[in-house]
Design a protein around this nucleic acid. Sequence first.
DNA 1: TGAACATATGAACAGTTATTCATATGTTCA
DNA 2: TGAACATATGAATAACTGTTCATATGTTCA
Lengths: 97, 97
Amino acid sequence: MIRLPDDDTLNKLSEFYKVFGDYTRVKLLCLLRQGEMCVQDIADSLGMTQSAISHQLRVLKSISLVNGRREGKTVFYSLADDHISGILDMGLEHINE
Amino acid sequence: MIRLPDDDTLNKLSEFYKVFGDYTRVKLLCLLRQGEMCVQDIADSLGMTQSAISHQLRVLKSISLVNGRREGKTVFYSLADDHISGILDMGLEHINE
DNA sequence: TGAACATATGAACAGTTATTCATATGTTCA
DNA sequence: TGAACATATGAATAACTGTTCATATGTTCA
């Protein structure tokens, strides 16, 4: 008998991984592994516009992969939890074999 | 000092996760966790055409997530290694919290 | 309050992608 | 060999997605 996660779970699962399936976002997540950063610094580090990064941060925030912390004019973003580093490591491990 | 994986690694990493970022493919991978299956049976299980599944299996095979084993007219597909189940579990764990 | 700065957002465009349809390839068996 | 079956593949299309540009929102400080 075939047993699969229900549709809602599969949807969330694929949406979750979809976020990791983009060069910019995965680079951004790797960057945030080293600690929180503000939007403009992220943009500079990745050689992208502030707008592009802000859009991507919104995606990451929408599924709770990052948190934003406002300090005056600046917003500092950081990884939301430890799973995320683990997921990145698992992927990195897979492609290095 | 900022330390990131090199471009090639980041590219492979995002391409790797991109494959999990699709409802059909992630469902297909979950299905194959239960053992090898032939193309038409997969298509029937997922309510999709043989062609659509065949195209997706090609994607999964191209980055070595599945293996095909021919037996007469039929080709049986299975997960390529144990990482893959682990990656699925890690995602499932993340969305159930 | 107003100027300067940091971030967020909406619309539009270009590039990508999953599915479908038609058909080709590969295999078995009579 | 030819018919029947299983899978693979190419082209076309519709839907989705990431970036850009322009601009809005939010914050500080003089």
